[in-house]
Amino acid sequence: MIRLKNLVAKYTTVRGQVAAVDGVHLEVPDGIILGVAGESGCGKTTLMKVIYGDIGFPLSLASGSVEYGFCTERGEPVTTTNIRDYWFKRISYIPQSSMSALNPVIRINRQFVDFRRNSKREADILDRVRQYVQELGLPAEAIDAYPHQLSGGMRQRIMVAMATFFHPDIILADEPTTALDVVVQKGILLLLMNLQEKMKNTIFLVSHDMGVHYQITHRMLIMYAAKAVEYGDTNAVFERPLHPYTRLLIESLPTIGDTQTRQGVAGRPPSLWSDLRGCRFADRCPFAREICRMEEPQLREYCAGHMAACHFVDRFM
């Protein structure tokens, strides 16, 4: 079990501090794919950084911690403070826009080898990497290239290869397939699913594509303006979304064959800099009432394992 305990993460800027993750408190069972969705700028990437333990100026953990469910050699539980010692071995991270995360002036093969310099012979690793990369549908030559020579999709697949190569317990994948065409995306997602079933590890998958979540995740976390607003089994979330934002997320996208005009959700998400009171979605919520603007709804469990933060969940039950 991975425990996210009351995480509050802040960025420091010249304007002051802003909380990009504000009180996320969840338990994630082992061996599942957890989907994370939510509006742009709501703190998904920040949450991934916090879980990865990649915390450093300007990002700071104002409160809370993460317990990863495994221990150090000395038997102490691994938490936010020492997770860095387990990077690549037990936890890996596919950053968002990983296309630009690759160092542009170093050939890909060097970047692969660099992170495990002392672990065996380099040539050996490179051969295995080459083979692995081919399994992911890339030409073996791609790893001899400089990143800028590869298309966005190819770079993304290289990153997926890097992150899964050492079979870590936890993989954080921040929009790993947004740059891919749907055919290749499907290949990668099915591959991730199979790898996950074999390795029995936990994958956090951030995506804006609700179809992707429906296809491969077991549970879903929906975030809005730095808060967790819904958390539950994927099928339950799709069948009966409890939070109005989740509902709009699922319903607002067009489908092929449907020529109706679609409106996005009116209004814009609140600026995290503004004075945030009550439910953060209230301004855009078609059902909002007085209480929504006054009082912040807590994340509560409504049916087994299905939680939401809304004053009027009953409406959807």
Binding site: A37, G38, S40, S97, T178, L248, L249, L253, R262, Q263
Partner: peptide
Amino acid sequence: EPVSMIDASLRMNVIN
């Protein structure tokens, strides 16, 4: 790919 990183609710606003 102007909207690849934008969530569903804002994506339709940009598309519209």
